[in-house]
């Protein structure tokens, strides 16, 4: 896999960059020793690996802002990373860049049942959102198969789906707002607890932008009451064609189908 050629000057200057980053995120928030960096050398697309210059684990939006401004000024590349479950290599590191990890920003900030939403930090797991709201019979609809591990920040970056997406859509259809840090370090809010924010729908393009437009530091998602009855039908077919015809006819009939799958 051919990646952009790293800038040797940035790599040569590693010590200086690490010191500058440590001034922003003190203590264990900056990882630079080679052995520890190995844990970040790939995501779930394990066929490709690359150790980053350093890993930075911020705890606040202010730190993220300062890190981005520093990188933008010096040319250090930034590879954001949630839980590292991307199957497409979205968080494969670069030799002349940092991995910006969100493991420390993993709090559920607010659950608001009156407005049917939850405000969480990007490192909260997908299932963590449902777990925070299920005591009142609510859940968060997008359910990628990695939902135990994958993070909401990563879901926003990849616009993750899941088996319920036929009825409830992908992440983008369940996303109400984000706090977004731009590369110059400025912070903007897109959307919020109200729907249809003014102006261009920038929230809509940030979802699924694969970490290329900005860094999300807070996420507001829509939560749904669980329906009263959910049944699963397991239907066996002798041929794939017959199964396919059944799927098409069932959906056309408008049944409240949430998902249809074919294990092997």
């Amino acid at each position: 896999m051919l990646m952009p050629p790293p800038d040797p000057a940035l790599i040569a200057d590693k010590a200086r960059h690490v010191a500058a980053l440590r001034a922003i995120v003190p203590g264990e928030g900056v990882i630079d020793d080679d052995a520890a960096l190995g844990a970040y050398e790939c995501d779930a697309l394990t066929a490709h690996t690359q150790r980053p210059l350093a890993v930075v684990l911020p705890s606040t939006t202010a730190q993220v802002s300062a890190i981005l401004a520093y990188c933008n000024r010096t040319g250090l590349k930034i590879v954001p990373r949630g839980a590292g479950t991307s199957l497409s290599g979205g968080s494969l590191p670069l030799a002349d860049g940092i991995v910006l990890g969100f493991g420390k920003m993993n709090r559920v900030l607010e659950v608001d049942f009156d407005n049917r939403c939850a405000v969480v930090q990007p490192g909260v797991t997908n299932l963590g959102v449902t777990n925070a709201v299920k005591y009142r019979g609510f859940y968060y609809a997008p359910d990628p198969s990695s939902q135990i591990a994958c993070s909401i920040g990563g879901n926003v970056a990849e616009n993750s789906g899941g088996v319920h997406c036929l009825k409830y859509g992908l992440t983008t259809n369940n996303l109400l707002g984000v706090e977004l840090v731009l590369t110059d370090g400025s912070v903007v809010r897109l959307g919020g607890k109200g729907m249809d924010g003014p102006g261009l729908d920038l929230l809509g393009v940030v979802a699924g932008s694969e970490g290329m437009l900005g860094v999300v530091t807070e996420v507001t998602v829509r939560i749904l009451p669980a329906p009263e009855s959910r049944r699963a039908l397991l239907i066996g077919f002798a041929s794939v064609e017959a199964a396919g015809a059944c799927v098409a006819e069932t959906i056309a009939a408008g049944s409240a189908i949430r998902s249809m799958s074919r294990p092997c």
């Binding site: 239907i235 066996g236 077919f237 017959a242 199964a243 059944c246 069932t250």
Partner: peptide, 22 residues
Amino acid sequence: MIEVEAIAKRNGCVSVRVSTTE
């Protein structure tokens, strides 16, 4: 649910099982 079963049968399914519990 009944409707889906009917569609499945029309399309020559070989088995149908409906979950009865969560």
